[in-house]
């Protein structure tokens, strides 16, 4: 069934770019706010843009700003960054299954640009995803993040305070926007998301573990529990009714 390049409508790269536009727009307020906060924390525009280029991970960049403001040591900042970003391990393992086979250097290149958002968009696509799609998607997200971090440092302070505050919801609203359509499709997804949310709330509110670990543990628990229940259910029936 291998359709060769003849009759295809648009290249995977272009479809990736199109899918990336919503992330690019979603990053706009967050990167802008990051740039602004970086400036108030005392980072130069050069350091701000460099951090966005090299780290490219929103949550940990925000956290590093508050740690810098507290006067935390460099080692602790790096360690915190590691813990906050360890969840990408799970995402990469998932994408490694879902992405088409390709040369390792290509995978190493696009893996640099995996974030919660690019992962969420890529992983909710139907079927296998191609290298071109991932590059298109990730490049739009990456450019938006880097450019608007710089812009935020330059002009962020001139935005009204209330608007700056309300932009804090942007990231979460985007996750909701990605999740809900899938929830409407399948009851299994509703359970997965609800369990992930409940576990993570218990772990963070109970202050049982640092936030980075909490997200990883909650995700794994939910994904394994739901899978185990489904395997048991199917064994009983002898048929599988979902994906």
């Amino acid at each position: 069934m291998a359709d060769l390049a003849l009759g295809k409508e648009s290249s995977p790269f272009r479809r990736g770019v199109q899918a990336g536009i919503s992330i690019g727009i979603g990053y706009f307020p967050i990167a802008l706010t990051f740039g602004l906060l970086a400036k108030t924390t005392g980072l130069t525009i050069y350091e701000t843009v460099l951090m966005s280029m090299i780290v490219f991970a929103g949550a940990s960049q925000y956290i590093s700003l508050s740690l810098i403001a507290y006067g935390t040591g460099i080692i602790e900042i790096i360690l915190t960054t590691f813990i906050v970003n360890i969840r990408h391990f799970l995402m990469s393992a998932t994408l490694n299954e879902k992405a088409e086979e390709d040369r390792l250097p290509n995978k190493l290149a696009y893996s640099f640009m995996i974030t919660d958002e690019t992962f969420s968009v890529a992983a909710t696509q139907e079927g296998k995803i191609s290298t071109g799609f991932l590059f298109g998607l990730n490049l739009v997200a990456y450019s938006s993040w880097v450019v608007f971090s710089g812009v935020g440092h330059l002009i962020g302070a001139s935005l009204p305070q209330t608007l700056q505050e309300s932009m804090g919801v942007a990231l979460y609203a985007m996750f909701v926007g990605l999740l809900v359509p899938s929830m409407k499709r399948s009851m299994k997804i509703v359970f997965l998301a609800a369990l992930g949310a409940v576990f993570n709330t218990i772990f963070t509110m109970g202050e049982l573990m640092a936030q980075g670990w909490s997200i990883v543990t909650a995700t794994l628990l939910s994904a394994i529990l739901v899978e185990a229940v489904e395997v048991l259910k199917n064994r009983h029936r002898g048929v599988s009714d979902e994906e």
Binding site: L90, A93, S182, K188, G196, S222
Partner: peptide, 9 residues
Amino acid sequence: NVPYATLGA
């Protein structure tokens, strides 16, 4: 399952 569980969390 990971994407949806992560999004919830």
